[in-house]
Computed example of a mutant assay.
Amino acid sequence: MKKISITLAVLLAAVATSSTAFAKEKVYKIATDAAYAPFSFKIDGAYTGIDVDVLAAIAKTEGFKYELTPMNFNGIIPGIVSGQLDGAIAGMTITKKRAKVLDFSNGYYESGVVPVVKADSKIATKADLKDQRFAVKKGTTSADWANSNRKELNATIRYFDDSASMFQEVINGNADVAFEDYPVIAYKISLDKTPVLKLAGDKLTSAQFGFGVKKGQNAELISKFNDGLAKIKADGTYEKILNKYQ
């Protein structure tokens, strides 16, 4: 009887340990930009895009779970730093400034800032940006570029929470030029049968998008992202995702 009791106790302990481990399975809270086609945007009530699909493919490959949290970009980095978010994949350019508070993955997409104007605008070069009215999205590298060049170009700047509002400001004639990541505006223009916007010259910068977490934390998640990214590039999944949106 004593032997049976000990065996039963061992089994119950094993079940309890297993149940506890299952209950504590980590679900990462990962942010993405709520409106940033072709990287993240909503179709028929569900989010899709390069960032959304890349994250899903990596999570599947590496076997981790996550809760996708779409939000305005300007709230993403504060959300990570405060601990409300575990990480973000949001068309986020890797910069020295951001690297002070975030740890980044390897770059997963090459981008760059370009000026965007109305289709009938005569603005065509950086020199033409002098004395113009800028529209920029808060918290972005596009906003950083506009701010750092404002004095040289004698420009005025207005800030917006999302790309759509920024572009509309240019379309309405309340701003002369907006600044956006090249793949975003190139995608938008490609969808328009009669484009009302156009690119004004070449990229002003060149940079990589990265997956970010709070500095000094979630090293395991960064490692999983990097490992998964390498795997989906090797097996062709990554290329298929890009081709879907280009």
Rank of each mutant, 00 (worst) to 15 (best):
residue 142 S to L: 10
residue 185 I to W: 00
residue 9 A to K: 04
residue 91 G to Y: 08
residue 45 G to P: 02
residue 9 A to I: 07
residue 236 G to R: 08
residue 169 E to V: 10
residue 110 E to N: 11
residue 238 Y to K: 02
residue 132 Q to D: 15
residue 159 Y to Q: 14
residue 11 L to W: 05
residue 47 Y to D: 04
residue 212 G to W: 04
residue 168 Q to V: 09
residue 79 G to I: 02
residue 218 N to D: 06
residue 123 I to F: 04
residue 19 S to C: 15
residue 51 D to G: 14
residue 199 L to V: 06
residue 177 V to G: 06
residue 165 S to G: 04
residue 82 S to W: 10
residue 164 A to W: 03
residue 177 V to S: 10
residue 4 I to F: 15
residue 93 T to M: 12
residue 27 V to I: 11
residue 180 E to G: 01
residue 215 K to Y: 11
residue 158 R to C: 09
residue 20 T to P: 03
residue 232 I to T: 05
residue 221 L to S: 01
residue 199 L to M: 08
residue 243 N to S: 14
residue 158 R to A: 13
residue 136 V to Q: 01
residue 116 V to K: 00
residue 83 G to K: 11
residue 172 N to I: 02
residue 217 Q to P: 02
residue 153 L to R: 09
residue 233 K to M: 03
residue 63 G to M: 13
residue 108 Y to R: 09
residue 178 A to P: 01
residue 169 E to A: 14
residue 12 L to S: 12
residue 77 I to H: 07
residue 227 D to C: 07
residue 116 V to M: 05
residue 155 A to D: 03
residue 47 Y to M: 09
residue 200 A to P: 03
residue 105 S to N: 03
residue 133 R to P: 02
residue 112 G to C: 01
residue 4 I to V: 15
residue 104 F to I: 03
residue 225 F to L: 00
residue 221 L to A: 06
residue 147 N to S: 15
residue 63 G to Y: 12
residue 180 E to P: 02
residue 40 S to N: 09
residue 5 S to F: 14
residue 195 P to E: 02
residue 217 Q to N: 07
residue 46 A to Y: 07
residue 135 A to H: 08
residue 8 L to A: 11
residue 117 V to H: 02
residue 164 A to H: 07
residue 228 G to N: 06
residue 39 F to G: 06
residue 243 N to G: 15
residue 12 L to T: 11
residue 124 A to P: 05
residue 24 K to T: 13
residue 225 F to I: 02
residue 60 K to L: 01
residue 65 K to C: 11
residue 222 I to M: 13
residue 134 F to G: 00
residue 245 Y to T: 04
residue 4 I to Q: 14
residue 140 T to P: 03
residue 128 D to H: 10
residue 166 M to S: 05
residue 79 G to A: 04
residue 208 Q to T: 11
residue 22 F to S: 12
residue 95 T to R: 13
residue 215 K to I: 12
residue 227 D to H: 08
residue 63 G to P: 06
residue 188 K to R: 14
residue 191 L to W: 00
residue 7 T to G: 13
residue 99 A to Y: 10
residue 245 Y to L: 08
residue 21 A to M: 15
residue 95 T to A: 05
residue 170 V to R: 02
residue 18 S to C: 07
residue 188 K to C: 08
residue 239 E to M: 03
residue 134 F to W: 02
residue 207 A to T: 13
residue 139 G to H: 07
residue 87 G to H: 05
residue 229 L to W: 00
residue 158 R to D: 11
residue 20 T to D: 05
residue 69 T to M: 04
residue 38 P to N: 10
residue 54 V to H: 00
residue 205 T to F: 12
residue 162 D to L: 08
residue 77 I to C: 13
residue 125 T to V: 09
residue 131 D to I: 01
residue 89 I to C: 00
residue 234 A to C: 09
residue 3 K to Y: 15
residue 172 N to G: 10
residue 171 I to N: 14
residue 196 V to S: 05
residue 187 Y to M: 11
residue 41 F to P: 08
residue 63 G to I: 12
residue 30 I to P: 00
residue 101 V to A: 01
residue 162 D to W: 07
residue 170 V to A: 08
residue 172 N to F: 05
